[in-house]
Structure formats: C-alpha cells, structure tokens
Simulated scan of single mutants.
Amino acid sequence: MKSLKNWRTRQALLAYALLSPAIAYFALYFFYPIVMELWASFYRGQPLIGQAHFVGFDNYLEALGDPRVRAAFIRTIIFSVATTVLTLVPALGLAAILSGPIKARDAIRAIIFFPYIISFVIVALMWKSILDPYSGILNSVLTYLHLPTQNWLSTPSAALRTMIGIVVWKDIGYAMLIYIAGIQGIPQHLYEAASLDGATRFQMFTKITVPLLVPTTLFLAVISTIAHLQDITSPMLLTGGGPADATRLYSLHVYETAFTQLNIGYASALSFLMLIAIMIITYLQFRLLNKEVVY
C-alpha cells in the first residue's frame, strides 16, 4: 500500500514537472496581465506607465453611459454575428459539396482555403485596391456593364457591409475544411441506411449531416464569434474606423483610448466589459448548441 502511494506521488510530481513550463507561461503571459489590467481599470490616467489616481468603479459607470461606447459595442455585435453566420452557412454547403466525388475537388478546396493563410495586411491592401472608387477593378467592371459605381469603403451605409464581406471571403475556407473533417467523421452506414429508406440527398443533409455536425458548428461559432468581437485589424487596415465611425469596432475604440488618448485606466475598464460580454455570449452559445451527438 505504501509503495502504491509512493508511486502515485512520483507520478504526480512528474506530471507537475512536465506541466510546469506551460503553467509558468500562462501565469506570466496570460493571468498576470489580466490581474494587472483589472487593477488598472480602477484608476484614471496611466496607472501602468505614469501618474494615476484611484476612482473605483467610475470608469465602468462612465463606459456604460458613453453613447460612443454603446454604439461601438452594438456595431461590433452586428459585425461578429453577421460575419459568423455568413461564414458558417456557405462553408457548410461548400463542405457538403466538396466532400463528394467531384472533379478537381482538392484543387477547389485549396483555392477556397488559400485566402485564409494570407496575412490580413496583404488582404487589406489588395481589397482596397480592388474597391478603389476611381481606379479599382470592381468599379471598372461596373462601368463596363453600365451599372452604377459604388464608394465601397468610404460610404457609411456600405463600409461595414463591405468589411464583413472581405472578412467572410478570407475566413470561409477555414470553416469549410473543419466542416469537411466533420463530415468525413460521420459513419457512412447512416447514409446507406437512409438511402435504402428512400431519402433524398437533401433529406440526408438536413436530417443526418447537419444534426451530427452540431459539435463542429459549436466550435466554429465560438471561435469565430470571439475572434470577431475582438477584431481590430479589419477596421484599422481597411477604413481606420470611418467613415463617420461606421466601422469603428469596439477593439479599435479601446486601442485608441489607450494609445492615442493615453487613458489606460478607462481603456482597461472597456476591455473588461468586453471580456464579460464575451463570456456571456459564449455561455449562451454553449446552452444553445452544446448537444450530445451519438452515432
């Protein structure tokens, strides 16, 4: 009995020794910054780099009452939900098609996935050139077809929709490949049995494929929503938050509050409010989509 206890102790010590680099990494680069930012959120000014004074929850109350913060938050929710839905729904359809025996399947997959591996800096420069209202290729094509041209990124009513479209174009290939992997994990005998019962391809897709891909959809929905709620590269590189704040997402507002206005305490409070929102949204996604799947 004593030898068994000693063996378990040695196993535990070995496990902790192997995990210690990862624990130290997360403690130093993840948990410590969170604690410091939480501390900074109760100060006004520059608590991490300069002078500051304690204000308690005043930063949080000011943020909740700031109409510009509310507008940026609502705009970010719209951006995140629209981008996630418009990415996952077509990606599922593409995955269903490209999982079948069609010609040049691998080449088509590679072409659709390719934008995902490109740096967003390159993507932004490319699309800004394509969408330029005076010299862009897209407006040139519209002119050739005798259709009205558009100011894609410089009109408040069109800028956010255009930015969503660009992000969807970039991300859809990744979601498609994840869905393809999920479809390949579904037992083939389920489709064979449904085929023998006279089910059509559409019925098999809606009654077998979609329900059994709920865990995959949950994974993609959660990571996509979190990523887009924190997205700063899209508005910063494509529009700078304009025109007229039409694409000013929450993260860009936080960034400018911290590093342009140098109000680090207030920016820290804004960051924690978004953290709380992300936790609530993720919890709701798990409640809605976290369903056990049995093959």
Rank of each mutant, 00 (worst) to 15 (best):
W7R: 15
R8M: 15
A15E: 05
Y16I: 10
A17R: 02
L18W: 03
A22G: 04
A22E: 00
I23F: 01
Y25S: 01
A27K: 03
F30G: 02
M36R: 13
F42A: 07
Y43P: 02
Y43T: 06
R44N: 07
Q46V: 12
Q46L: 14
Q46W: 08
P47Y: 06
L48F: 15
I49H: 14
I49N: 14
G50H: 15
A52Q: 12
V55R: 06
G56T: 13
G56M: 11
G56L: 12
Y60F: 13
L64D: 08
L64Q: 11
G65T: 10
P67D: 10
R68T: 09
V69Q: 00
A71L: 07
A72N: 05
A72R: 04
A72G: 06
F73Q: 05
R75N: 10
T76R: 01
I77R: 01
V81Q: 04
A82D: 04
V85K: 03
V85F: 08
V85Y: 05
P90A: 12
L94C: 06
A96G: 06
L98N: 05
P101Q: 11
F114G: 09
Y116A: 07
S119M: 12
S119E: 06
F120H: 09
V121K: 09
V121R: 08
L125K: 05
S129W: 06
L131E: 01
S135E: 05
G136C: 02
N139K: 03
T143P: 02
Y144R: 04
P148K: 03
Q150V: 02
Q150E: 03
N151L: 01
P156E: 02
P156G: 00
A158S: 03
T162Y: 01
M163A: 02
I166E: 00
K170S: 03
I172P: 02
Y174C: 00
M176V: 08
L177W: 01
Y179V: 04
Y179P: 01
A181H: 05
I183P: 01
G185K: 04
I186E: 03
A193P: 11
A194Y: 05
A194E: 05
D197H: 14
T200N: 11
F205I: 11
T209A: 14
P211N: 11
V214W: 14
T216V: 14
T217K: 12
A221S: 15
S224Y: 13
T225M: 14
L229I: 10
T233A: 13
S234E: 11
S234G: 14
P235D: 09
L237W: 09
G242Q: 05
A244Y: 06
D245H: 05
D245G: 04
D245T: 06
T247G: 01
T247K: 03
A258T: 01
F259M: 13
I264G: 03
A267Q: 04
S271Q: 04
S271T: 07
M274W: 15
M274F: 14
I276G: 07
A277N: 10
A277I: 13
I278G: 06
I278E: 07
T282H: 12
Q285I: 14
K291E: 07
K291T: 10
E292V: 13
Y295E: 09
